[in-house]
């Protein structure tokens, strides 16, 4: 076997076939390039956000004096300050922080599932995949609550035109700031949330195939690695969304 491989390699160069020049399987390589293209899509969304936000006036006063207005871009920490079951308590960014923590933890359990797959430890893969799925569902539930709160709005409301009070947000108006603000919230967190949702579906598929012993029969757990790459990417995107949308 070894001699036949070297025979192929000797009369053909590294890029002439017969070997994998990038040292990974076809599937894994394509997953990497898909993620690169996906990174371009998310970058486009975040960069457009940067363009539109920097073309609007910024609020210049002290954060504690901030009020919602159509005239300047809102300060994010004054928009996202609600936490479930703590009605009326101002806890800026705490809920988003919890969501970030959940996603990081599910990334850790995913990498532990991949590690277990390398050792052919079916029971451990099952355990860690379940935790990862649970983390994904927890994140999606948090996001559902956050969207609900964002759409319904706070008691304060704000005037979108003279003599009106508008509560919450839709794609045309929102109480927090210029219309673009809510549009970007829906598109960026929505597009990311959709990725989390597809990630949970893929994770479940992997879990199902592990439980039925498909990968054991196949002799390797490479599918766990490929879907793991996707899941880490979802976490990676959230790290950027967290900074550019919620912190800055």
């Amino acid at each position: 076997m070894a001699s036949s491989t070297s025979a192929v390699a000797s009369d053909k160069g590294l890029w002439d076939g017969g070997t994998s020049p990038m040292g990974v399987s076809y599937g894994k390589l394509m997953m990497w390039f898909f993620l690169l293209s996906d990174a371009f899509t998310f970058s486009a969304l975040l960069i457009t956000y940067g363009l539109v936000r920097s073309s609007h006036k910024a609020f210049t006063g002290h954060v504690s004096d901030f009020v919602f207005s159509q005239n300047y871009w809102p300060v994010p920490e004054r928009v996202y300050e609600a936490v479930p079951f703590l009605h009326g308590v101002e806890l800026p960014l705490v809920f988003v922080g919890i969501m970030t923590f959940i996603l990081i933890m599910s990334s850790v359990t995913m990498v532990l599932a991949v590690e277990a797959g390398h050792r052919m430890d079916r029971k451990a893969v099952e355990k860690w995949m379940l935790w990862t799925i649970l983390g994904g569902i927890a994140f999606l539930s948090c996001q559902a609550w956050e969207w609900m709160h964002f759409i319904h709005g706070s008691e304060a409301g704000s005037a979108v035109a003279e003599g009106t009070t508008f509560f919450g947000a839709n794609l045309v108006h929102n109480q927090y700031g210029p219309p673009d603000f809510a549009a970007f919230f829906f598109f960026i967190t929505g597009f990311h949330g959709f990725h989390v949702f597809s990630g949970v579906c893929l994770n479940f598929l992997i879990y199902f195939n592990t439980v039925t012993g498909l990968y054991q029969r196949r002799g390797h757990y490479e599918m766990v690695e490929k879907v793991g790459l996707y899941w880490h990417f979802v976490d990676l995107v959230w790290v950027f969304v967290f900074t550019f949308f919620y912190l800055v």
Partner: peptide, 23 residues
């Protein structure tokens, strides 16, 4: 700080640090 976090995720969790240089 975001780049630090992204670095750890991509290089360690996604294992890119240990892949072939061309990849």
């Amino acid at each position: 700080l975001t780049i630090v976090k992204a670095g750890y995720i991509v290089l360690e969790f996604m294992h890119l640090k240990y892949e072939v240089k061309i990849l």
